Amino acid sequence: MISSVNPTIKAISILVPGIFLSFTFDVFTPLIYLLFVLAITFTLTNISISKWIKIFSPFVLVALGFAWMAALYSNQTYSYGEVHFQLWHFEITTGSIQTGISLALRSLCFVALSLLFALTTDSTKLMLSLMQQCKLPPKITYGILAGYRFLPIFKHELHVLRQAHRIRGVSRTRGIKGQINQFRRYSIPLLANGIRKAERVAIAMESKGFTGDKERTHYHDLTVSKKDWYFLTMIVGTFIAVVAISYYLGYLNIFGRKF
């Protein structure tokens, strides 16, 4: 399963096609690769389809907005072909429509790849992998982990503050000035509690021998296995194959230039 792949290798696997997809401006390449990403998402992971659709759906609207804006404001390089209709002084051509659809599909590819990574990667394993495989300093790694663990605590404390204010008869204020005062009432106690918690965590880490030294042992040793390289080969290799097929069929378009 993809959830057991080393997070660093998984991140590289996601970044490589994501970066090179931004160079393509045809419809075929991002469409086929999007279908491939969707196929492995629903066959090689335990991601709930309903949960995935709930997260993915808002980005479809964003992608449609990108497509519409790209079709309206395409420059001469991408506004080739027959004029299909005119909106005010904007001429919508075959090239501008293809550019807009391509941009939308690329955006959806980025989202699908990001969800594949985010929904199958444990945050703790990601930080440990960055520290062990990418040699990220332990001070940065454990600092990020500590900050990440504080987020749900801050959410709970904010809820407690709101309930306490409501019990004491402090209602929600309106207007810009009222919103500023309300933000001040919430932010100062949260900031004070955050500083106190950070000091406790720092003292606890020092008392347990944490010095930030890179030469240290780990309770969980993350290694790179053959399975991780297979995953990298599958993701990147499929992208190369899709680009090759697109080039062979005459669809490949890089920055407005067909190959």
Score class of each variant (00 low, 15 high):
Ser225Cys: 06
Pro138Ala: 14
Gln76Leu: 13
Lys214Arg: 15
Leu119Phe: 05
Tyr186Ile: 11
Pro30Cys: 10
Ala198His: 06
Ile167Gln: 09
Lys54Ser: 12
Gln182Phe: 06
Phe42Leu: 07
Ser129Lys: 05
Thr120Tyr: 06
Ile32Asp: 00
Lys177Val: 08
Leu151Ser: 03
Ser129Trp: 01
Ile92Ser: 03
Thr173Leu: 12
Gly250Thr: 11
Lys10Thr: 00
Lys208Pro: 04
Ser22Gly: 13
Thr43Ser: 12
Pro7Leu: 07
Leu151Gly: 00
Ser207Gln: 10
Lys226Leu: 12
Ala198Gly: 13
Ala241Val: 11
Glu157Gln: 11
Ala198Arg: 07
Asn6Ser: 06
Gln132Gly: 06
Tyr78Arg: 15
Phe20Ser: 02
Ile235Ala: 12
Asp122Ser: 07
Thr94His: 06
Tyr248Asp: 01
Val243His: 06
Phe66Glu: 04
Ala63His: 08
Met127Phe: 12
Pro152His: 13
Thr43Gly: 08
Thr45Leu: 08
Met127Tyr: 05
Gly250Asn: 05
Gln132Lys: 11
Ser123Tyr: 10
Phe183Gln: 05
Phe110Glu: 01
Ser3Gln: 10
Phe59Ala: 02
Gly143Gln: 09
Ile144Met: 13
Phe59Leu: 02
Ile195Asp: 00
Phe183Arg: 03
Arg257Gly: 09
Val170Asn: 07
Arg196Leu: 07
Leu130Ser: 01
Met234Asn: 04
Lys139Ser: 08
Arg166Asp: 05
Trp52Thr: 09
Gln86Asn: 09
Ile144Thr: 08
Arg257Tyr: 12
Gly178Leu: 11
Ser114Arg: 09
Ile49Gln: 04
Ala202Met: 09
Ile32Ala: 10
Leu222Val: 05
Gly209Leu: 10
Arg257Asn: 14
Ser107Trp: 10
Ile235Glu: 05
Gln76Ile: 10
Leu116Val: 07
Phe110Ser: 08
Thr93Asn: 05
Lys10Asn: 00
Leu119His: 02
Asn6Met: 05
Phe56Arg: 13
